[in-house]
């Protein structure tokens, strides 16, 4: 069977078709087998060079992308804003074009500004993969979240997923909403009024401010991190109060007496959005998410690279 993605860059889930997402999943299934072999490497991208540009801190996403690239045999160069000329006042396009002059085929970029990836794709000649742009999208995270749900529940159609926490500042939430809806799941967001965007209901999601009731409703709960660094003003009185209202504990889950799946995109604030007991319980698929992240990113890079045809004429 043959197919390819409808897009040339991965900028956001919004641009993907349901078929694109299914193709990424089917490809990731095979890469998941690859990364569990005695030798976890395939030669597919050996003639591709990928630049990882991280204008914002990241541990997990960056490591995950780098592992995915290496397991596909791509060459990689890394760049982080703190140790670069960005602090000397260079513009984004100049930075990226300088890197592309060194013959780089793909760019994986994390940037604090929403739309940075789209902007780049319109202004430079390279395949762009968005690894998170401000509070806009984080497509690979949404793909790996949905892939992890699919792994546990087979099909996402009709599944009920609640995203809990700081929806306002969360790119993970937005990408997850798009991705889950395209796969036929029902999505609800839950959090303090101040952290729920005013017009979120226009995306077709339900809004709730009651964690207990949302847990009773859902099959899967995705607990977002409280992003202290993005909160320039106080959105809730105290962390303690947030935890009392929206913190997930093991007794709450046990009292539901149902097969509920708990996810978290990391990094976890243990004892804030979820307790240690929940994070380490059988309800949690947090570490599966991390493993699946590498497979999903391999699939995305592989499928995008396959669209850049070999050119022997310079």
């Amino acid at each position: 069977m043959m197919s390819e993605l409808s897009v040339n860059h991965l900028l956001g889930i919004k641009d993907l078709t349901t078929e694109d997402i299914q193709l990424i999943f089917q490809t990731a299934d095979q890469f998941k087998e690859v990364i569990n072999r005695p030798i976890r490497k395939v030669p597919s991208l050996r003639d591709i060079t990928i630049a990882n540009l991280f204008f914002e801190n990241s541990t997990r996403t960056r490591l995950s992308f780098e592992l995915a690239e290496k397991r596909l045999s791509a060459d990689t160069v890394n760049f982080s804003a703190s140790s670069s000329s960005v602090s000397k006042g260079e513009t984004l396009i100049d930075t990226v074009n300088n890197i592309l002059s060194m013959k780089v085929d793909m760019v994986v970029m994390r940037h604090p500004n929403p739309g940075a990836a789209v902007f780049l794709s319109q202004n430079v000649d390279s395949i762009i993969v968005n690894a998170g742009d401000g509070a806009h999208e984080h497509p690979t995270q949404a793909l790996l979240d949905a892939f992890s749900i699919r792994e546990k529940h087979q099909d996402l159609k009709g599944k009920k997923v609640v995203i809990v926490g700081d929806i306002l500042h969360s790119r993970v939430a937005l990408s997850n909403i798009f991705c889950l809806q395209k796969l036929g799941a029902e999505v609800r967001v839950c959090g303090p009024t101040t952290l729920i965007p005013k017009y979120i209901h226009t995306l077709g999601v339900e809004v709730s401010h009651n964690l207990q009731e949302s847990l009773e409703w859902c099959d899967v709960a995705n607990m977002l991190r409280v992003q202290h660094e993005r909160q320039d003003i106080k959105y809730f009185p105290s962390v303690r109060e947030y935890t009392q209202q929206f913190g997930l504990t093991l007794p709450m889950l046990d009292s539901l007496k149902k097969d509920i799946t708990i996810m978290h995109p990391g990094p976890i604030n243990r004892g804030v959005e979820i307790t240690t007991e929940v994070a380490d319980s059988d309800y949690s698929i947090i570490l599966n998410q991390v493993e699946n992240g590498v497979a999903i990113r391999m699939a995305v890079l592989y499928l995008l690279a396959s669209k850049k045809k070999m050119n022997f004429n310079g």
Binding site: M1, M2, E4, T27, Q30, V42, D47, Y302, S306
Partner: peptide, 23 residues
């Protein structure tokens, strides 16, 4: 064994082949 990721015509075919299960 699926050999899709080891093919020598990657980025040369018009449309890439979809991989099958390796077990």
């Amino acid at each position: 064994l699926d050999i899709t990721f080891y093919r020598d015509d990657f980025r040369r075919r018009d449309i890439p082949l979809q991989p099958n299960q390796t077990k």
